[in-house]
Nucleic acid binder design. Structure first.
Lengths: 136, 136
DNA sequence: TATAAAAATGCAACCAAGTTGCAATCACTA
DNA sequence: TAGTGATTGCAACTTGGTTGCATTTTTATA
């Protein structure tokens, strides 16, 4: 709805249709990684493939990152990188509650690769217990 | 068949049945990560779920690691860790040919996590072009 | 050794998540 | 306003993983 929201989409070359604004609104302020199924549950009146297509579109236009936390479900997180569009923070995946945290302030330490390997992107996922699950 | 093979399985608390020896034989010398589907293709006369159960068994007995390289397929690699049973090397996943390399000599750099996060395992996957694909 | 009990296997079916084909609808331009 | 292309909703399909169960094999016990 808001002009603000439209602007972000337009700035990234995305036509702000009703579906896309709806999806973006549900997504833009999230700090944790989320899956398609999360959005499905929250917006049961919306079509799965429409949400899916919006997410993929956002990801291809650098509004979201696609991350893989080892749970077998594709997750997304809000991209806040100014640089080259690549993820540069680590993720934490809780083995108990299944939530994935974006640790924005923790950058991925780099490794020099053997000759011939040309890196493009890095995924650094720590698995264990998150603060709320480690308390118990 | 070989006593050697049986010994490895027995040493890890696994009864060396025919299926398991067959699967282990197809797996033990691999340097690259592999998926269930790879073994299915190589041993078409074997049952999928039997291979699957063997792999899961091996993994639960620390003979294999289950790794997630972001391709959406569960991959496995030969465990050569002497220490705590955790993976400690990085992986390289080629976006062109889909192969996943275990870079055994490249250990995962550690990151101090925020208060409350209790790490158990780490996944470090670099995506890009492998030596054979980056040549072209 | 014969038999009972337990474990492993093969098969078919199921499930979840992602993805696609296509017709209906919408948005925009001429 | 008609025509064109993009978008959407729906249903169906694909892939990979997983499970239920009857059959077979192995192991333990009498």
């Amino acid at each position: 709805m808001s002009d603000e929201m439209c602007k972000i989409l337009l700035d990234h070359g995305i036509k702000p249709t009703a579906v896309r604004r709806r999806v973006w609104g549900a997504v833009e302020h999230r700090m944790k990684a989320f899956a398609l199924s999360d959005l499905e549950d929250e917006m049961p009146e919306m079509d799965r493939s429409s949400i899916f297509r919006s997410l993929r579109l956002f990801a291809s236009h650098q509004l979201l990152h696609e991350i893989d936390d080892g749970t077998g479900k594709q997750k997304y997180c809000r991209c806040r990188c100014e640089d080259d569009g690549h993820l540069n923070h680590i993720h934490f995946s809780c083995v108990r509650c299944g939530r994935t945290y974006c640790l924005m302030d923790y950058t991925i330490p780099r490794v020099d690769l053997p000759e011939g390997f040309v890196p493009d992107d890095i995924e650094y996922v720590v698995k264990g217990l998150c603060p709320s699950c480690s308390k118990g």
